[in-house]
Write a protein that binds this DNA or RNA. Structure first.
Lengths: 300, 300
DNA sequence: TTTCTGCTTTTATTCGAGAAAGGACATTGA
DNA sequence: TCAATGTCCTTTCTCGAATAAAAGCAGAAA
């Protein structure tokens, strides 16, 4: 089997949506424009148009791409069909290590994973090389991979670096004062946090997204590719954290939302010491929360 | 072509050396022991023994592995034969981007690189995925890789993070006092630095190795896998730095050697403030030195 | 019994092939 | 005249195959 034609199928779906917007009797824009809009090649656009023509949704000849009928739900490719092999491997692997309750030291075999994911060994191999960046797995050359695991030391090391970066970013922002881009951006998040806070019982699930936005701003403050890279690791881990620790979620998110609002309030008042303290408190409670979710104590 | 049998050839060479040590009339240890000593499998050991037997170097039957003659230089595999494809790709790629004087934004094609390296596209692909960790290249999905390049901003961002980590490590060490493992280890490097310093005109080439050892100790102080990972990036860059900036090398290394000795002297005296100042000065001059070696100003 | 060996099975590394997606260029038509 | 199309070639993504290397198991030797 060759590559999955996910780009083609995804583009086809998007095109169907565009057609629904334009409506019957309308005309699709030039190939070049479609390609540019979605960041794909004209080759793929033409493949999509060909199929649209064959299924009788458009009448395509030369520059004429007249819409004959609106698409119905059966015309669309399913979401399973529009994912690439690489995405499939990633999803399957994350499911495995996040839900699998695997002990640190567990041996991961490329061939075994490939069989269970229903992909080729090479696809798994490439994914593992990419994923090794996160420090959760290690390769024994000419042998297998070993899961280092989401252990206490992993969480602590992660948080130590995170704190170092964020603290530095926060201080830099405070030094630059209220005209700083990040300062303003953080303050601008107030409304969203308040909306969540006001109806926390129903909207606590919206917090993780906001938390990520808040901290992303800080990581970007330093304008450093290594810092931003590291934010990718943090994001991955917190995604896991939020996803697998459902008990007490409301309480935790309520606390964290309040902490964010306190930081923002201090910034609005222009009280730097207060802001610094509030931020330090927030990092501390985030650390505690993360460490509580660790279920493996020691490295394998 | 399958895998390169580099392990086999490398092991064969090592076995020849061991045979020369033992001498004619001696006997090689059990397969298990040989395998364990070099961290390879018994399968490979047996392949090596088979060849040793066929070339008449040993008489092998069951447990008897009697040495018949000493190996001569023609018996050894050449160093070209004992490297894996992965190593070959790595070397070739580093040569290209370090010596190639490529502008930031240069497009790197897997197939093109594969042709010029004489390996398969997959080998190149895997290497690039691994190498992308260093922040010097980026992938445009379904397209090519783009060289971000060794630019001023790359060097500055690298050094900012390095400084953050090393400064923290140094402070932690100072807090813990003269009994700290790193403190003692740094002081222990004095003799080596003095030996270089005493004959700097002839031994300045030995400095990079010592510099790396010095800073490695600091990076390890924090006992953090993310920090240690980052040290890998720093090492790679400084390897480049030392390798391609030959002019003024003596002057730079003389200065840096002196700086290291100043830090160590302050530690021996137990004067923390002096040590902190000396260390800050050293980082500053290292930064200047690195930035001077950047030949590309802007990102592409 | 405990090593160590001989043989067999499984896994990792590397390559090459085939289809999808990208890109270049000549040609068409408003 | 120039944007848009038709055509063709190149590159990437994914798989499968072949051999090196690892790993397991039964039996022989000490």
């Amino acid at each position: 089997m060759p590559r999955s034609s996910a780009v083609y199928k995804e583009s086809y779906n998007r095109c169907l949506e565009a057609i629904a917007e334009i409506g019957t009797g309308g005309n699709l824009p030039p190939e070049t424009e479609i390609a540019e809009t979605w960041g794909i090649s004209r080759t793929t656009v033409r493949a999509v148009l060909k199929r649209l023509s064959k299924t009788g949704i458009i009448d395509w000849e030369g520059r004429r791409k007249a819409i004959l009928r609106l698409p119905h739900s059966e015309d669309f490719f399913t979401s399973e069909e529009t994912i690439t092999t690489a995405e499939k491997v990633e999803t399957a692997f994350m499911e495995l290590i996040l839900g699998g309750d695997l002990a640190p030291g567990t041996i991961l075999r490329e061939s075994e994973l490939a069989r269970s994911f229903g992909t080729s060994p090479s696809a798994v191999r490439e994914f593992l090389i990419r994923f090794s960046r996160f420090g959760l797995i290690e390769k024994e050359p000419n042998r297998h991979w070993v899961l280092r695991g989401f252990t206490r030391s992993f969480a602590e090391e992660l948080f130590d670096v995170r704190e170092l970066f964020e603290q530095r970013a926060f201080d830099q922002m405070l030094e630059r004062g209220p005209e700083d881009r990040t300062w303003k951006a953080l303050v601008a998040l107030q409304a969203e946090f308040e909306r969540i806070s006001a109806d926390i019982e129903n909207r606590y699930m919206e917090f993780p997204r906001m938390d990520e936005a808040f901290h992303k701003l800080l990581f970007e403050q330093l304008q450093n590719r290594f810092v931003e890279d590291f934010f990718g690791v943090v994001t991955m881990v917190f995604h896991y954290h939020y996803r697998w620790r459902k008990s007490g979620e409301l309480t935790r998110n309520r606390l964290a939302t309040r902490e964010h609002l306190e930081i923002i309030a201090a910034l609005r008042e222009g009280d730097r010491q207060k802001a610094r303290d509030a931020f330090a408190r927030h990092l501390q409670s985030a650390r505690t929360s993360l460490l509580e979710s660790v279920h493996w104590e020691e490295e394998g």
